[in-house]
């Protein structure tokens, strides 16, 4: 921001060329594809759109996607907060190793993650026994998809909270304890309020990542229509089957959800500064 601040005595030419570079880059990268998508939907017309979108498989796909998003947010909020607290407040052997592992989901290709889970729970895998033990199939099924979604979305909450917890420090908590607060009261009344905006931000990032996940859930779930097909997998299948209206329509819905989410997130970021 400081670069384009006119108060810093910057020459207008530099300022406007910087701004237009950014705008053009974004327009080319984000604006054009979106416009093409809208235009294509318009050309295909609403009749095809409703025909290809309003059916059980599509509803199921969106329902499954939302379920995965919800569970990813739920579990990663609880365990992500816990892990962030441990990483910031406790010292233990191998802490830097854990710190490195936290970023693994960022670095690994989602497809690779999917294959890892298949190897783990599939025939001959280390955890094959769990399938019989729990009576649930953990590969080519929804439980497996939940697991991989948790895996790929895991870093967002932790990575959001660790720097925040470091910044907030422990003095307010210590002050609360000297005033007579038990650890439980300290957590709910001091720690949580101090990190709540960061938590919401982490939740929306987690949700957004789960919403857009494709490779891992496809590999683990096999993308069976009406069963293990998510919204993104539906878009992929619809394209293959030349159901263009359905593909574009579903894409537009996904984009709208993501847009609302990210916009809300920006608002949250502003609130956090207060």
């Amino acid at each position: 921001m400081a670069l384009v601040n006119p108060r810093h005595g910057q020459r207008p030419l530099i300022k406007y060329s910087l701004i237009s570079t950014v705008v053009l880059y974004l327009a080319w990268l984000l604006g054009l594809p979106l416009l093409t998508l809208l235009q294509s939907i318009f050309e295909l017309g609403t009749a095809k759109l409703t025909e290809q979108l309003l059916n059980y498989d599509v509803f199921h796909a969106f329902g499954l996607t939302l379920l995965l998003c919800f569970l990813a947010v739920l579990f990663n909020t609880i365990f992500g907060t816990l892990l962030a607290l441990v990483m910031v407040r406790q010292n233990f052997r191998g802490k830097s190793l854990v710190n490195g592992l936290l970023d693994l989901p960022f670095a690994l290709s989602a497809v690779v993650v999917g294959y890892m889970f298949i190897l783990l729970f599939g025939r001959g895998g280390w955890l094959e026994g769990i399938n019989a033990f729990t009576g649930i199939r953990w590969v080519f099924s929804i439980p497996g998809m939940i697991l991989v979604t948790l895996f790929v979305t895991f870093p967002f909450m932790v990575r959001e909270l660790i720097p925040l917890l470091k910044e907030v420090g422990t003095e307010q908590e210590e002050a609360a304890r000297t005033l007579g607060a038990s650890p439980w009261v300290v957590f709910w009344r001091i720690t949580l309020p101090n990190i709540r905006w960061g938590m919401l931000y982490g939740m929306s990032l987690t949700f957004a990542r789960a919403l857009g996940e494709f490779g891992a859930v496809l590999v683990v779930g096999a993308g069976i229509a009406g069963a293990t097909e998510t919204a993104t997998i539906f878009v992929f299948r619809a394209m293959e089957e030349r159901l263009y209206a359905g593909a574009y329509g579903a894409s537009l819905i996904l984009i709208a959800i993501a847009f609302i989410l990210l916009f809300a997130m920006e608002m949250l970021k502003k609130r956090r500064k207060v």
Partner: peptide, 18 residues
């Protein structure tokens, strides 16, 4: 700490920001 009945003042105030 919470049962000792002490008052503590920190260098950086440690006021509850919220």
């Amino acid at each position: 700490t919470q049962k000792r009945g002490v008052g503590f003042v920190f260098q950086n105030y440690a006021l509850f920001k919220q």
